[in-house]
């Protein structure tokens, strides 16, 4: 039994590594899923993101983060194109999502009026 447990652990670690490796060189979208984010509409924003990705057949990695202390700006959505700065958009609505996907994720132009923070590449 013990060894099966260990195997399970190993598999989980390998899966995490695989995920990290697969995500290299891809555009990343991160959604704030803390209590403040969820209360402000993060779930609906995420659904809109997933639907845009599905509709436009984009190869994007979507992940989540917890509360980062900017509760009044939730829902927060980060976009990071490979090798570029990580841009945080705030008070994002379902309607904003389409703009962010088309202008930033597809065309590479930051949607300046929605930006609330910016993290330099490699500055994580």
């Amino acid at each position: 039994m013990k060894s099966l447990e260990e195997l399970k652990k190993l598999r989980e670690e390998l899966q995490k590594e695989m995920l990290a490796r697969n995500s290299k060189g891809k555009t990343k979208i991160v959604i704030g899923m803390g209590t403040c984010g969820i209360a402000a509409g993060a779930r609906e924003v995420l659904q809109a993101v997933l639907q845009e990705i599905e509709k436009r057949k984009l190869d994007v990695v979507v992940s989540q983060t917890g509360c980062i202390g900017m509760c009044e700006k939730e829902p927060l959505l980060d976009v990071q194109l490979p090798g570029k700065d990580r841009i945080t958009y705030g008070n994002v609505t379902k309607e904003d999502v389409q703009r962010i996907i088309v202008e930033h994720v597809i065309n590479g132009n930051i949607v300046e009026d929605l930006v609330v923070a910016r993290l330099e590449e490699g500055g994580e």
Partner: peptide, 16 residues
């Protein structure tokens, strides 16, 4: 409310 949205969110963000 939107139970489906909650489940899809959880699965989409936490495949592991």
């Amino acid at each position: 409310g939107d139970i489906k949205g909650t489940l899809i969110s959880l699965i989409a963000l936490n495949p592991g």
